[in-house]
Design a protein around this nucleic acid. Sequence first.
DNA 1: AAGTGGTCTAGACCACTCT
DNA 2: GAGTGGTCTAGACCACTTG
Lengths: 247, 247
Amino acid sequence: MTTSHKVVAFDSAPGLSRYAALAAALRARVVAGEWPPGSALPAESLLATEHQVALGTMRRALELLVAQGLVERIHGRGTFVRQGIAGASMLRFFRFDSGSGEMPRSRILSRQRVAAPAAVARRLGLATGEMVLRLQRLRLLADQPCLLEELWLPLDVFAPLAEGSTAEWDDLLYPMFARRCGVHVHRAVDDIGFAVLTAAQAIPLGLAAGHPGVVVQRAAYDLGGRCVEWRTTRGDAHAFHYTVTIT
Amino acid sequence: MTTSHKVVAFDSAPGLSRYAALAAALRARVVAGEWPPGSALPAESLLATEHQVALGTMRRALELLVAQGLVERIHGRGTFVRQGIAGASMLRFFRFDSGSGEMPRSRILSRQRVAAPAAVARRLGLATGEMVLRLQRLRLLADQPCLLEELWLPLDVFAPLAEGSTAEWDDLLYPMFARRCGVHVHRAVDDIGFAVLTAAQAIPLGLAAGHPGVVVQRAAYDLGGRCVEWRTTRGDAHAFHYTVTIT
DNA sequence: AAGTGGTCTAGACCACTCT
DNA sequence: GAGTGGTCTAGACCACTTG
């Protein structure tokens, strides 16, 4: 008598190593929602027998996914699909002198349902004229305004945020995106530059028009690689600092 | 009859895995100069038998050194100690609109042998008052000044640079450091900030006093982890740009 | 105690580079 | 063809977490 085991096929490698093909197959299952963010994958031994490869090969595949930031492994507990980026990640570019353990606060200044301008539509991978949510947001530290943000979100997936009061929104957006819209931000690309602030940008920050400012433009992507946010953040250039290590 | 093989001992692990201890032992031999930058290490199979470990374990150790940036492996050729940082690494923070294939040029504005000020001595790990080389350097792109730099170098290892004409110096410093002083810069930490330029800083750059400037402060380290350079670079803030990806 | 990931072994075979 | 690193296997044993 033969026992029946679940067997999962994966595309054999077109020039790819077996563990790379395995990693791609596992990634596809994660993106498809088979294992939601925060949940555990089956044990590596199980996955190995399922895919009919040696344990070491499956380990290589999982290590690859760890390096790619898709999953994280915890000794003795298991392999988990990573939750998205935590939030407050914009503050890492700034050094505001306030109580160090200070919680950042947020205030939504405006919220509009608008047709996407061409530049925004291109960034978000939408057709020009598709509906988006435009937000203006002020971030405060110890009740002092420090960052002014303009966000563009595709309405098809962020529709829940178009309704209800914005006064009750969380101070951190990404956890709220996950909870209310099922959108997990897994990757963000920040482009940093400097520009003089206009009056409209400077006043909410308590600065004067013409003050030097930092401009961070961010594109944020979900698990599947779709751009789900286009954001421009402005702050006082004198508060900017960032450290890079090169090897 | 027994054949005699070279056997290299390494400290058994005080809480370290065997491959981590192996990596540390190999790193020590590289730092000691047994395999100079650019040269090849023995084959992994040889190293494995020398250290009396399985091939896979030695591979883990070498992979660790690759991840740390100490060596690089080339399929079919061997394992090589990495040369230092190439140079021109400061330009990656700026976007000067000129011919894209433009070679950056350098001009040494001043060179002094001076006693290290306290702040510099601390950064370089010297006693206050030890002798250092202070350089001012202007970097040009298409004959346009773009960056102004102030460098502090410990004289004990950079003595060869205190003699002779600075007019003949290379445009890239790090390869010259390696060739003339045997100093290989393997790691650099850049701290980016913002400040308004003084007249003395702005004039050489063709800007006006009070112009917004980017300030990059760099500590550069050699193979052994010694800080061998402390540098401050200033440039037009409007030319600054940098991209960071977070996951 | 049971289940998880982490380390280590000893081998076979493949892919690439140089001469 | 000889020598290098890269992949894959099949197992043993260890270390950590949880019930």
